[in-house]
Computed example of a mutant assay.
Amino acid sequence: MTTPYPGHTGLRALLARPVLRQLVRFGIIGLLQNGAAYAVYLLFTWIGFDPKLVVGITYPLAMLVSFLGNKKYTFSHKGGTTGAGIRFLIAHAVSYSLNLGMLYLLVDRMGYPHQLVQLAAIFICAAFLFVALKFFVFRSTAVRTA
């Protein structure tokens, strides 16, 4: 069996593919960023702060970590920071709205535990953001044609 990546077999060949390599890197940054944010979320909601307020405070900090890490490490984006930053904010505005909508609908309206809803929201928003960052925020300028 031949592989399009000479010298790579099995897992190495799989990880040599750019999309999978990006997904793994995105996951590493996401685990570090979201693990810390979720710990802060649990601490402050345990103290008594409103879950939506805590998300409103932690989300912008997590966004900054995500932008810097994913721009350089995940997608190796060489384009300008301003355009990517604006697109990044748009993608996160959609993700943030999705997150708050899940909390409102599933916690406030349906009574599910906020801890579980927020944990699920992390994964749902992460999947959306990977696609948005890859194809919208840090898209390759070489791929676009007139």
Rank of each mutant, 00 (worst) to 15 (best):
M63Q: 02
A13L: 02
P60E: 14
L61A: 03
G56Q: 01
I29K: 04
G35L: 02
S66W: 02
Y5V: 12
L14T: 15
R21M: 01
F67R: 12
G7W: 07
F44D: 08
L68F: 12
A13S: 05
P18V: 15
I57L: 12
R21H: 04
L43Y: 09
D50L: 08
F44K: 11
A16G: 03
M63A: 10
W46I: 09
L64K: 01
G10V: 08
L68H: 12
V55Q: 10
Y38I: 08
R25H: 14
L31G: 11
H8L: 06
G30C: 06
F67G: 00
P60M: 07
L68Y: 07
I47F: 10
G48Q: 03
L68A: 08
A62N: 11
F67M: 10
L31N: 01
P51D: 05
Y5Q: 07
G30Q: 09
G48K: 13
L31T: 11
Q33H: 04
W46E: 14
L32S: 03
Y59I: 05
P60F: 00
R21T: 04
V65D: 09
M63E: 06
P18K: 09
P60Q: 08
P4H: 00
I29W: 07
V65N: 12
G7K: 01
P60L: 11
L43D: 00
G7D: 07
P60T: 11
I47R: 11
T45A: 07
L43C: 10
M63V: 08
L61R: 04
G10D: 07
L53N: 11
I29Q: 06
G30A: 04
L43H: 05
S66H: 09
A16D: 00
T58W: 04
P6V: 01
M63Y: 05
G27F: 04
Y5D: 09
Q22G: 10
L11P: 10
Q33C: 14
P6M: 05
F49P: 02
A36R: 12
A13V: 08
I57S: 02
V40Y: 11
P4E: 01
I47K: 02
F49E: 10
T58F: 12
V55G: 14
I47E: 08
R17T: 14
L43P: 12
Q22P: 05
Y59G: 06
P60A: 04
L20I: 15
L68W: 00
L31P: 08
G10I: 04
I29N: 03
L61I: 05
I29E: 09
D50V: 15
G56P: 14
A16I: 13
R21N: 01
G35M: 01
G27C: 06
V54F: 12
W46H: 15
I29A: 06
T9H: 11
T9A: 09
I47H: 10
G48N: 13
W46C: 10
Q22W: 04
T45C: 02
L23Y: 09
R21E: 09
P6F: 00
R25E: 00
N34R: 15
V19K: 10
G7V: 07
G56F: 00
A37V: 11
V40I: 06
I57A: 10
I29R: 03
A62Q: 13
S66T: 15
Y38R: 07
N34Y: 07
T58S: 02
I29F: 07
G35V: 00
G35A: 06
I47G: 03
A39L: 00
G27H: 13
G30D: 02
A37G: 11
T9M: 08
L23F: 14
I57H: 06
D50A: 12
